[in-house]
Design a protein around this nucleic acid. Structure first.
Lengths: 334, 334
DNA sequence: CGAATTTATGAAAGCGCTTACACATTTTTA
DNA sequence: TAAAAATGTGTAAGCGCTTTCATAAATTCG
C-alpha cells in the first residue's frame, strides 16, 4: 500500500495525495475529501523512511538520560515521552550512564538517527570543566538541544530547570529557623544541580552568619539506590565525632538512608534528627516516618520543556531558559 | 556527505561502498580497507532513512509499557534498552497507559514507525478476555512480538516470564509454615500475572487443606503509587472485621502501604503482622522495617528477552517461552 | 469580455541507499 | 591450456515519498 495505490483509487496524482497528507493549502476541498476518504478506507499510512528521506526529518526526538531506572529520571522520561507523543512526536530513548565517554557515544548514536531534537534529562550532562561540554555544543549546531535540570549558555540550547540553589537555601533556612543548629548536607553527585544545591546550602549558612564547616558537607560515593550504604556512611560520619541534628539531602534515596541511620542510632525523628529529602518521590511516602522533601514540580518542568521543544521545531521563538522554583513539602521528618 | 562522496574519494562505485558498509563478503580485503579508511577519515555514517527505505528496517525495536515511571517497569525498560543498544539496536519508547484502547493506539503508532520488533513490557498487555488480544496477534503477523512477564500462545510471539504462580504459592506456604494463620492477599491489578499470583495463593491455601475465603483476597483499586491510600484501604478492611496476621502483596508499593497500616494500627512487625512484597524493588529497602520481597530476577529476564529478540531478528530459531523462577528474599517483615 | 491573477493539479526529478544483474578478472578443474 | 567456476566490481533500477516547475482551470479586474 503506497501513495501510488491511493492516487490511483482516488483518481489523482501522487503529488496531490502527498499534499493532502502534508496539509498543503493548495488542494480543493472536494479533492481533499476524496483523497481522505480513500486513505481512511484503505487504512493507509505513509512509509516513514520514504517520508524521512524526503523531509530529512522523522518527527522524532531523542531522549537521553543517565539511567532511566532512577526513580527521578524515570518520572522525567515518562512525562517527557507522554508530552512528546501528545504533540505528535516519537521518542527514542537512550540511557547513557554517568560517564562523559558513554554520554558522548550515546549522543552520537542518537544524532545519527536524525532525530529532530535531543532532550538531555538531568544535570549530569553538564560537566563542571566547560571544555568537556563541547560535545553538547556540537550537537546544538545540528539540532536544538533541550536540557532538563541544567543551565547551559549556548546558542540553540534551551534549559528548563528548578532553582535548586534557592530551594536548598530555603530548606536550610527553614531548618535553622526551626532550631536546628548543626545541619549536615548530604549529596551524591557532582553534577551541575548538585553543585547549585550545595551553594544554596552554604549561602544559607553564611546568611545566618554561621561558620562553614566542610565536615558538614558530606559526599556519599556509593550506588544511588543503596539505602543501607547511606545508613552505614552516616554511621561512620557520626563515629568521626561529627555531630548533627538535621540532614539535608540532595535526593530522597539519601534521605531514606538517613532515616535508616536514625533508626540504627535509636534517634527519634524529628526530635533528635530532622531529615529533608529532595524530589518528593514515592520514596518519601514509603519511608517511615513520612519524609519531608523538596518538590521541584517535575511534571510542570517536563511539560514546559516539551512545549518549548515543539515550538522551536515549529519555528516559533522561545525563551532559552525557564526557571521553576521548588517547594518544601513538610511531612513527619521535620 | 553521502555514499557518492565516499565512493569518489575511495575510487570505487557506490555499490562497493554499500557492500563494505553492510559487511557483504564479496569485497576484496584491499578494497574493503581502502573504503573503510575513507569512511573513518570522513566520519561518514549512512543516512538512516535511505537505508531504511532500501532495507525496510531501521535496526530499531519498539518498547511499549504501560507507565515507564512505575518503579518496576522503569527498571525493566532500562535493562531492555541497555541490552538492545549493546546488541546494536535502537529503542523507541512509548508509554501506553493501562487501558486497552490506549494500548492499541500506541501499538499502532509504533508499528507505523516500522520497528523491527516490539517488546511489550508487563503483563498488563494481555487481556483476560482472549478476543481482546487480537491486536497483539495482528502485530505479530508483521513483526516478532516479545512479551515480558506474560504468557501468550501465538505464532511469532515470544514470552519471557517469571513463574509468578509458583513464587506466590511458595511465599504463601512459607508464611503458613511459619505459623501464620490468616493471610491476606493484596493485589491491585487484574493483569495476567496478577491472576497467576492469585491462583498461586489459592493453590497454597488449598494444598494446606485450608478454606478459601474471598475476604482474604483484597483488591486495591487506587493509583499505583498511593501508599497512604493502601494504608487506608487496609484500615477499612480491618474495620470490616477481617482479621489477618500476614499480608502477601502483589507489589512492593502495596507492601509499603501495609507497613504504614501496621504502624497506624500500632501492630508490631513481624510479630503481629508479617508482610511480603513482590519485585524486590528499592522500596523494599526504603521501608521500615526492611521488607521481605519476592525477587523475580528482572535483569536476567530482560537480558534473556533481548537475547531472544536479537536471535529472532537474525533468523536464529528461539524458544517461544522462557520461564524464570522467583525467590523470596527474607528481611525484617517476616 | 479579454487580460492578468490566482488556484488546482500533474509530471518528473530527486532524497541516499540496497541489490539484481551484467561484466571483467582471477582461480580452479580436467 | 582451454573451459568452467568463482570472485570482485560497476551500472542502473528501484524503495516511497516530497517538491519544483509547468500547465490547465477558475477567478478577478479594468
Amino acid at each position: 500500500m503506497t501513495i501510488y495505490d491511493i492516487s490511483k483509487k482516488a483518481g489523482v496524482s501522487i503529488a496531490t495525495v502527498s499534499r493532502v497528507l502534508n496539509g498543503s493549502s493548495n488542494v480543493s476541498p472536494k479533492t481533499k475529501q476524496k483523497v481522505m476518504d480513500v486513505i481512511n478506507e484503505c487504512g493507509y499510512s505513509p512509509n516513514v523512511f520514504a517520508r524521512g528521506l524526503g523531509l530529512d526529518s522523522m518527527n522524532c526526538v531523542g531522549i537521553l538520560c543517565a539511567d532511566s531506572s532512577d526513580i527521578y529520571l524515570a518520572k522525567a522520561v515518562y512525562y517527557i515521552e507522554q508530552a512528546l507523543r501528545a504533540g505528535g512526536y516519537n521518542a527514542i530513548l537512550a540511557c547513557t550512564g554517568y560517564s562523559l565517554e558513554t554520554r558522548k557515544a550515546s549522543l552520537n548514536m542518537i544524532m545519527k538517527q536524525r532525530v529532530d531534537c535531543v532532550i538531555l534529562v538531568g544535570s549530569s550532562f553538564i560537566e563542571n570543566n566547560d571544555a568537556d561540554n563541547d560535545y553538547i555544543r556540537e550537537a546544538a549546531e545540528k539540532v536544538p538541544v533541550m536540557l532538563l535540570n541544567a543551565d547551559f549558555d549556548c546558542p540553540n540550547v534551551y534549559c528548563t530547570l528548578c532553582d535548586d540553589f534557592k530551594s536548598t537555601m530555603d530548606a536550610t533556612i527553614w531548618l535553622l529557623n526551626h532550631k536546628r543548629k548543626k545541619i549536615l548536607y548530604l549529596y551524591n553527585s557532582h553534577s551541575y544541580s548538585a553543585i547549585r544545591k550545595l551553594s544554596g546550602f552554604r549561602s544559607a549558612i553564611l546568611m545566618k552568619e554561621l561558620d562553614l564547616d566542610k565536615n558538614y558537607e558530606q559526599f556519599y560515593d556509593g550506588p544511588r539506590d543503596n539505602i543501607d550504604g547511606v545508613r552505614d556512611f552516616l554511621l561512620s560520619v557520626r563515629k568521626n565525632h561529627i555531630d548533627f541534628d538535621a540532614v539535608l539531602c540532595a535526593d530522597d534515596s539519601l534521605a531514606s538512608g538517613a532515616l535508616k541511620y536514625a533508626k540504627a542510632s535509636k534517634l527519634s525523628i524529628p526530635k533528635d534528627l530532622a531529615v529533608i529529602g529532595y524530589n518528593n518521590s514515592i520514596l518519601s511516602l514509603a519511608c517511615d516516618p513520612d519524609l519531608s522533601s523538596v518538590d521541584n514540580h517535575l511534571e510542570d518542568q517536563c511539560n514546559q520543556l516539551v512545549k518549548s521543544c515543539i515550538q522551536i521545531l515549529s519555528g516559533i521563538e522561545t525563551p532559552q531558559k525557564i526557571i521553576f522554583s521548588g517547594e518544601l513539602i513538610e511531612r513527619a521528618t521535620t
